[in-house]
Nucleic acid binder design. Structure first.
Lengths: 293, 293
DNA sequence: ATCATTAGCTGACTAAAGTCAGGTAATGCA
DNA sequence: TGCATTACCTGACTTTAGTCAGCTAATGAT
């Protein structure tokens, strides 16, 4: 069973990289090195900071610099310093660059059309559905969940998104001041933990753990970005938080949640949490859960 | 609808090549150029003729030669002339080469395992199924159907396979001498056509057309390899033969088939062929079909 | 026996990809 | 103000990938 799955994954990898790789090479690379074409693609219509490009394409700083100079010489891009921090430089397409990107887009569409053309309508529908599944699940597979300093910019950003969402979903809005605290000190070792889920180094979810008293912990700040819901990321964050709790020597974890967050409630129940009577007076809490680890 | 399909295909291509490409590069390429690793893979445990390697990997003859010399110097392979034709040389792994391939295999398994690990059992099942679908349908999409000289080695091979299959499926076996002819001259322009379906330049199916009398043609030698059945290749060969028939100025095409070939019958009926009374005395025919183009 | 063809090899090249050790300007911090 | 850090750049390299022309040996056809 597991063996068969591995054989399938390997066979898939080989055949798809081969079949689709040909596209990337021949279609996208219109008499231009592949790296340059990819760079144009990655800069995109809105432009992109050089540091961001370096991170996304995982390129050596010197190499990227050279590629940018080459595209600049060809009149396809412009690289200008940011106003706020003039060390950071931002690459943007010129009008010639836009045309080039249009052309790349066009070729991509052509390739996709050529791929689908020989298939019957039913086969087309089927392959499209299967591709969506594979892509979605690959995204899940490469999503990482890591311990993070709760004051880091990504962690802060997640919490901000979380608060914003609560504010729109709770009937009377949400004010973090009125809610029970989860300060940086409380949610980092040795008292707690803060986890960030990332896809392609972009934060897409978080979860925090703090110690209430010896052996008893509390889970806070469980959030998954709208784009990543329904993929089991919440479940993985929750499991990872429980692992952290065990490492901190906690035996029981608690959490409270609002009636408007139905998915969260369902997740907790599925994951072995049982409803208990109110253990605090959080003004936004409607349900209280507990689990013995 | 079509637009959405194209967007899906493109998004799939980007994400899969990125995610899976990393594997190919980092896992397979163990401190060795990718081309060499692929070559070891392709030579495999049974070894492989150099010409075959050239065809499969689509490499320049000189380049391949150099790669082989490099692997030979590393003691991983041996290249020896064939006994029957000493121009043709066959590459095989040495025991060190075997170990290397084992290692590559192991890394591949590891990669696949790592990919599946974060997924739940249900997700794993789903991605494996979707991967199979995508792979199968991509194979369909890149299958080519081309006009071919009926005496070419691939065409002959297909006909041979076809006869073999008939011999096992017909109750009393099959003797091509007793069957109605379809000689090379009859199944090539200007009288007819011979089509070969190929996947990765390997023949996987065929079909022939010959002119019986002005305006009237006959379809013969419809065969699809067992490994490629159920993918609509037969349908595509049939359509392509009809296109050929139209180009040859034929208005009606006929064909006869045996009762044991149920899939074929079903295909003909689906494709607009209607059963008619026997128009010949082929000893193996049980059903006679006809279609006005 | 002669000659064309096939299979593979070698040498000489180019382009693309990637690495690494410095360098400079801008910024942040004590 | 001075100094460390950050963001990016340049120059000098290596490796990998790939192309092309011309060569040799084996084979097949006549």
């Amino acid at each position: 069973m597991q063996d068969e799955a591995i054989v399938t994954v390997r066979s898939f990898s080989r055949s798809v990289t081969q079949r689709v790789g040909i596209f990337t090479d021949r279609f996208l690379g219109r008499d231009r090195p592949l790296a340059e074409a990819r760079l144009i693609y990655e800069i995109g219509r809105e432009g992109c900071d050089v540091r961001e490009l370096r991170a996304r394409l995982d390129l050596d700083s010197g190499y990227l610099s050279r590629l940018l100079r080459s595209l600049e010489r060809q009149g396809l891009i412009e690289v200008v310093p940011q106003q706020t921090d003039r060390r950071i430089r931002r690459a943007g397409l010129t009008s010639a660059g836009y045309r080039e990107l249009d052309e790349l887009d066009h070729r991509g569409d052509e390739f996709a059309g050529a791929l689908l053309a020989p298939l019957s309508a039913a086969q087309r529908e089927r392959i499209v559905g299967a591709m969506q599944d594979v892509e979605r699940l690959l995204n899940v597979a490469v999503t990482t969940i890591d311990l993070e300093h709760p004051a880091s910019s990504d962690a802060q950003w997640c919490v901000e998104q979380y608060f914003k969402e609560l504010d729109t979903r709770f009937e009377g809005g949400f004010d973090s001041e009125q809610s029970i605290s989860a300060d940086p000190q409380e949610t980092m070792p040795p008292c707690g933990a803060f986890l960030v889920a990332r896809l392609d180094s972009r934060a897409i979810g978080c979860g925090a753990l703090k110690t209430l008293q010896p052996g008893l912990g509390s889970i806070k700040r469980m959030w998954v970005s709208r784009s990543a819901r329904g993929l089991g990321i919440g479940r993985r964050i929750l499991s990872a938080l429980e692992d952290q709790a065990l490492e901190l020597g906690l035996e029981v974890v608690r959490l409270e949640t609002n009636r408007s967050l139905e998915e969260a409630q369902a997740l907790y129940r599925r994951h072995g949490y049982t409803e208990v009577t109110a253990f605090n007076d959080d003004p936004y809490a409607d349900f209280w859960f507990e689990k013995r680890l």
